[in-house]
């Protein structure tokens, strides 16, 4: 039964005298390699040169604050649930009096850690988040010497109040609209093995 038409019939034919000398073949091979000397090099000499990233590049995560500067994350845990690499852990806490300006709702993430060595930058956490709290950015995870250093805590993930990170390109209207559809758990419409994104 033929599955694909890529299969090749291997021949056992006796080599002709010229072929069995291999020399022409060798020379041909050498010419091929030599010709590559004159090819354009695709090398990008990072860090002097950098590659242009696309708008939807999925890089280092960020935990967004709302317009008032309060953290959006309510430690609902959906991101951790969605994470296929199980890179996310969190610990919730109740908002105390006087912390209203810090946390948007009554519950917040006391600890929020992503293990960057585990993370595969799939963006599912972003999609899962009902609070628009976590986004992937075009930043690149720094190199570190220690494994522990790759576990990013809130200190690294939450955007600085004075250095807000623009994720507007990721918050496409489409996405925003999608998330506003009532009655739909926007992250959990499974049919078979595929997420049906096209509601409209």
């Amino acid at each position: 039964m033929q599955l694909t038409n890529r299969s090749k019939v291997v021949s056992n034919k006796v080599q002709s005298g010229m072929e069995s000398m291999y020399l022409p073949a060798i020379l041909k091979g050498m010419m091929i390699t030599a010709s590559h000397i004159f090819k354009r090099r695709p090398t990008i000499r990072y860090p002097e040169q950098t590659r242009k990233l696309s708008a939807v590049y999925r890089g280092l995560h960020v935990l967004k604050r709302d317009e008032k500067g309060a953290e959006r994350c309510t430690a609902c845990g959906l991101c951790a649930l969605a994470c296929p690499a199980e890179a996310i852990t969190m610990e919730n806490a109740e908002r105390q009096k006087g912390e209203e300006s810090l946390y948007r709702e009554e519950k917040y993430a006391k600890v929020y850690e992503i293990n960057m060595l585990r993370c595969i930058f799939c963006g599912l956490c972003e999609e899962a988040c009902p609070k628009e709290a976590i986004f992937l950015t075009d930043r690149i995870v720094d190199t570190e010497y220690e494994r522990e250093d790759f576990i990013y805590g809130k200190d690294k993930l939450v955007e600085k109040i004075d250095k807000r990170i623009d994720v507007s390109k990721r918050q496409t209207l489409e996405v925003a609209e999608f998330k506003k559809i009532p009655g739909i758990k926007h992250n959990a419409v499974w049919e078979g093995n595929r997420i049906d994104r096209k509601i409209n």
Partner: peptide, 10 residues
């Protein structure tokens, strides 16, 4: 590197 379209030590 040259033969493999790379740059090599630089």
């Amino acid at each position: 590197a040259l033969l493999q379209d790379r740059v090599g030590p630089n």
